[in-house]
Simulated assay, not measured.
Amino acid sequence: MQDGDTIVIPTATDVTAAEATQLANTTLSPNTIQVGVVGEVKRPGATELKPNSSLNQALLAAGGFDSTASRAAVDLVRLNPDGSVTKRVVKVNFADGINEATNPILRNNDVVIVSRNGLAKTGQTLGAIAGPFGVILNVLRLFTGF
């Protein structure tokens, strides 16, 4: 470098999946990444994983699905390098190897959302509807000895 030299650092427009995987293995990348696994898993919350871990590995690190989980698919929410956010549905198949459709590689700060299954949603709705009737019956019992 000499006086008057200029250093130009171009702005990255987009990082492909292959480039992201390659960058995760550099000496400048962290030893672990944080992925949020929330919803119907046994240990929801921030999960620490090695770089280049897959969606299946994140689900297993969170303890796997609980009894009320919808096991067919999960939502993957990702903050992209350009500041945009993407949300997509990923079908879960623990037998699949790493692939973008059913077992993608996760990036730091990705969030995996596991929803409730239909039976759990129905039970919750029925409980919300029946709850006030239980209160009314208890009041009637109090005054009528029913």
Rank of each mutant, 00 (worst) to 15 (best):
L119C: 01
N138G: 12
V35W: 03
P51K: 12
V89Q: 11
V74K: 00
G4A: 07
G134T: 14
G134F: 07
K91R: 14
I113A: 15
Q34W: 01
T122M: 14
L126Y: 08
N25R: 14
D110E: 04
N109P: 05
I113W: 01
I129W: 07
P132K: 02
F94V: 04
A128M: 08
L142I: 14
D66S: 06
V74R: 00
P51F: 12
A72C: 01
F143G: 06
F65K: 06
R107W: 00
I9G: 00
G39D: 01
L76W: 07
A61C: 10
G123T: 06
P10A: 13
Q124I: 06
A62D: 02
L142R: 15
K42S: 07
R88P: 03
S70A: 15
P51A: 13
L59V: 10
T68A: 14
D110P: 06
N93K: 09
T26E: 11
G118S: 14
E100K: 13
V139S: 04
L60G: 04
K91P: 12
A128Y: 09
T6H: 10
N108M: 04
A62C: 05
T47L: 00
N109R: 10
A120M: 14
A72K: 02
T47D: 03
A24L: 01
D75P: 00
G145D: 12
N108E: 04
L119R: 13
S67Y: 00
P51N: 13
G39V: 00
K42A: 10
A101V: 13
V77C: 05
I98Q: 11
V90F: 08
V38T: 10
R107G: 11
G127E: 10
V135M: 13
L28H: 11
